[in-house]
Nucleic acid binder design. Structure first.
Length: 829
DNA sequence: ATACATACC
DNA sequence: TACTGGTATGTAT
């Protein structure tokens, strides 16, 4: 193979992933070799080191695979990719928006700065915040020794024996952070905090207003007392001249108007002045400095804020030329989102700066996933989000802890319970409930495992969470026995949250679907509509779903007595037993298999299935086999909230020959709406399975498919085709799936967001026929406004119905929608 | 849906 | 002695 590389690695004798990361500010001109030597010597032979070695090898393997793939790319394919890349570049270029002013603000060595402020003796010493095990941040003195965030304290001590390590005090940092945020809010009330010490702001509006501001509004006072303790005088933002009789001393030098001794500083109306003013005010308020980056998008602003750190700012002019210049020499690693591994992979391709990115984009488009290379493409063009995304709702909550080896089962279980208690407490504060519980384990060799289980209903209590976590943990223990699990960390996470104020899963997603301004605001010039479309699709699959409810028999794991932890919750509260069940898809699939097994293609009898499912309440229920007759009669009763599925839907149709009363020779797939020329339910079900898989994998049926309008493959391109076949490319699936007979319908939502949905193509001569995706009825009008109005009504009706029915015991959301849809119309056959 | 990896602070 | 903890997202199955 390629000799020099491995030799070099041997010679250097350390892992790249462990070596000093001197990417950050304050790390220039260090004796890297010496530092790396110390780092290596401190780690060598440890379990951690071994683990890193293993990970390194995995990455290397990935890179080898990539290089191999690269070697197999035919010239032809590269050319084709080049054309495609260029087209996309043009498209992106066209959408370039230079009109916004985005500022990224980042406090300098935040935690360390706070501690130094409150303990001036630290000022001239190398110090770091954290523990002997791990440092959160270090001051600039310490950085000169190679001491930096994410480095364990004991290694830092070797690098810098005089290092002072101060324990973290998050409450304090939070309080300071709040003060800083008050200043942010004055410039952009919608700013987005990224952490305690940094945020993105959109300065566009402030800047415009500022132009007409009087000088008094741009004048700010130096803090009254500079040397000693700091009472936070909560002042009204712009301090006016008249307000300040105090002959405050001014130790700081102002670079502007006032000579030393002036108690004020007047800031100009320019962008730089505005940002400087904001930083000034932060400093006056907190005695801490911040750095800022100013650019037309978030990606660039982020990079810029690092440029003149600490206590500086950098503005990248909003011209294409300036941006391209800036980006050319930018090391890829500086870009947010490109980390150690991506950097290494890119380096292997000879890419270290963004200029290289642009030069090799064709290659990247063939070697990297679509999302990955699109991101790289944007980076290479200096593009990024031009708006500050509204703060998204949280998607998960977790807690985890590292400890000395824990091998005893009882201890592991009781620790698990403690974690669940903590988590339940946190989750309660935000009033959340989640359906997915994930257990995280790390053994003493630093190998990490996660095990998750998704319930049908959201949970929030300690008992419910623990019931799941415990089960997951016990499974792992059992799997390993007779060896014990030798753990060094355990964590519990909850996700798949359901509405803020409880109960009905899905309720919020429907409301969110209708509510203006709730979803979008990704604002980034591209890739915007993904989530929306996903929502649409899943909505679609819900509303096209089952006709009847066939409950599945479930067998539950026996629940043993638990010697650890609290008593399990029983039925005292008259509580319905909440049974975690398999997912809709799992169940549909399981039933399908069963159907095939029993060869009951035309038979309507469906037996319960025997998946072992635990209960969160510690109960064990054995449900009997339900007949399809029952199922047909009772569409989703309150007592049985199990989900409908496509199988029952299909069976229903098969047996009733469709609503129209005509027996048809083909079945219509409720997902893709295409006719499937069969009456064999097994075949049909297989088709639906495939559709569901495709749909969930491929929510964007309507992407700006630049992908392959150039699919006019000439014959000599066999090479190309072979290459394509070997690739794992979602794009390809996409147009394979598509679409001779599909068309796109635009739904203009209440808040003017455009939603695209796939629809079948019942076209007449005049043009597209509009079909309501909710009630499935063909609409007379081809006026989109009228059509949208109708859809709105339909959707609203759904929600109203759901809200009405809310007081009753849990009804599966799917059934709610389905029964509704079914009640109103819908026949697929 | 689940597991694992990557990334950021 | 000692290599985090919290959240999000991408990739693969």
């Amino acid at each position: 193979e390629f000799q020099p590389k491995s030799k070099k690695k041997l010679y250097l004798g350390f892992l790249s992933r462990m070596a000093l990361n001197d990417n950050k500010a304050g790390m220039e001109g260090l004796d890297r070799d010496k530092i790396n030597k110390i780092i290596m010597e401190s780690s060598k032979g440890s379990r951690f080191y071994e683990s890193e070695l293993k990970k390194e090898q995995q990455v290397n393997h990935r890179i080898e695979k990539m290089m191999l793939q690269k070697a197999q790319i035919p010239e032809q394919r590269l050319k084709k990719a080049q054309a495609q890349v260029e087209r996309m570049a043009t498209e992106l270029e066209r959408s370039r928006d230079l009109s916004r002013v985005i500022v990224h603000v980042d406090m300098d060595a935040f935690y360390a700065a706070v501690e130094t402020r409150d303990c001036p003796e630290l000022k001239d010493k190398p110090m770091a915040v954290g523990s002997m095990s791990m440092l959160s941040t270090s001051n600039y003195h310490a950085r000169k020794y190679g001491v930096r965030a994410a480095m364990p304290g004991f290694i830092a001590k070797k690098l810098c024996p005089n290092l002072v390590i101060v324990p973290t005090n998050f409450a304090k940092y939070r309080a300071v952070s709040d003060e800083v945020r008050e200043v942010f809010a004055e410039y952009d009330p919608h700013f987005q905090p990224m952490s305690l010490d940094e945020a993105y702001l959109d300065f566009t509006d402030h800047l415009e207003q500022r132009q007409s501001w009087p000088e008094s509004s741009r004048t700010h006072r130096f803090r009254a007392s500079s040397a000693e303790a700091v009472p936070e005088d909560e002042d009204l933002s712009p301090v006016l001249f008249e307000d300040s009789p105090s002959t405050s001393l001014c130790l700081l030098d102002s670079e502007g108007v006032g000579a030393a001794g002036s108690a004020f500083e007047v800031f100009g109306t320019s962008l730089e002045e505005a940002v400087r003013e904001m930083r000034f005010r932060i400093e006056q308020k907190t005695m801490l400095t911040a750095s800022a980056g100013i650019a037309p998008n978030t990606m660039l602003a982020k990079v810029c804020s690092d440029k003149n750190k600490p206590n500086g700012q950098y503005r990248l002019p909003s011209t294409r030329e300036a941006i391209m210049d800036f980006v050319q020499n930018l090391p890829v690693r500086k870009v947010s989102g490109i980390g150690k591994v991506s950097e290494k992979m890119l380096n292997a391709l000879g890419i270290s700066s963004c200029s290289h990115l642009g030069q090799q984009m064709e290659l990247l488009s063939l070697l990297f996933s679509e999302t990955a290379w699109h991101h790289l493409m944007q980076v290479s063009l200096g593009l990024g989000s031009t708006s500050i995304p509204r703060h998204e709702e949280r998607k998960s909550m977790s807690t985890e802890r590292t400890f000395k080896e824990l091998s005893n089962v009882e201890e592991q279980l009781s620790f698990c319970r403690e974690l669940c208690e903590d988590l339940a407490e946190d989750i309660k504060k935000e009033g959340l409930k989640g359906k997915t519980v994930t257990l995280k384990l790390k053994n003493v060799n630093f190998e990490v495992k996660t095990r998750a289980l998704t319930l049908l209903y959201a949970v929030a209590t300690v008992d419910d969470i623990f019931a799941v976590a415990k089960d997951l943990l016990k499974t792992e223990i059992d799997n390993e026995s007779p060896q014990p699990l030798r753990l060094r960390l355990m964590g519990v996470r909850i996700s798949a949250f359901v509405s803020l104020d409880d109960k009905k899963p899905l309720q919020r997603s429907i409301v969110g679907f209708l509510k203006p301004g709730t979803t979008d605001s990704s604002g980034s010039s591209q890739g915007t509509n993904q989530k929306l479309e996903k929502k649409c699709l899943s909505y679609q699959s819900f509303q096209t779903g089952p006709l009847a409810c066939l409950p599945l028999a479930q067998k539950c794991q026996r629940q043993e007595e638990v010697p650890w932890g609290k008593k399990q919750r029983g039925f005292e509260g008259g509580q319905t037993s909440e049974e975690p069940k398999q997912s809709f898809f799992q169940r549909a699939h399981a039933k399908r298999l069963q159907l095939q097994a029993t060869n009951a293609s035309t038979q309507q009898e469906v037996h319960g299935e025997n998946g072992s499912v635990m209960t969160s309440t510690g109960t064990c229920a054995e449900k009997g086999v339900e007949s399809s007759k029952e199922a047909h009669e009772s569409d989703s009763t309150a007592s049985d909230p199990s989900e409908n599925d496509l199988v029952s839907h299909v069976e229903a149709h098969a047996s009733t020959s469709g609503c129209g009363g005509t027996v048809s020779e083909s079945l219509t797939c409720p997902v893709c709406f295409r006719q499937v020329e069969t009456t064999d339910l097994n075949i049909f079900n297989t088709h639906i399975d495939q559709c569901l898989t495709d749909a969930s994998r491929n929510p964007n049926q309507c992407t700006v498919s630049d992908s392959d309008s150039d699919m006019d493959l000439e014959k000599g391109q066999k090479e190309c085709e072979e290459f394509e076949l070997n690739r794992v490319d979602p794009q390809e699936d996409q147009h394979n799936l598509e679409n001779d007979s599909l068309q796109t319908i635009l739904l203009i939502n209440g808040d003017n967001r455009t939603v695209t949905m796939r629809q079948p193509q019942p076209c007449n001569e005049k043009g597209p026929v509009l079909i309501c995706p909710v009630c499935q009825l063909t609409q007379d009008s081809d006026d989109l406004t009228i059509f949208n109005h109708h859809v709105d009504l339909c959707l609203n009706q759904e929600v109203l119905h759901e809200l009405e029915g809310q007081t009753s015991s849990p009804i599966n959301p799917t059934s709610v929608i389905n029964s509704k849809a079914i009640g109103e119309c819908v026949c697929f056959i």
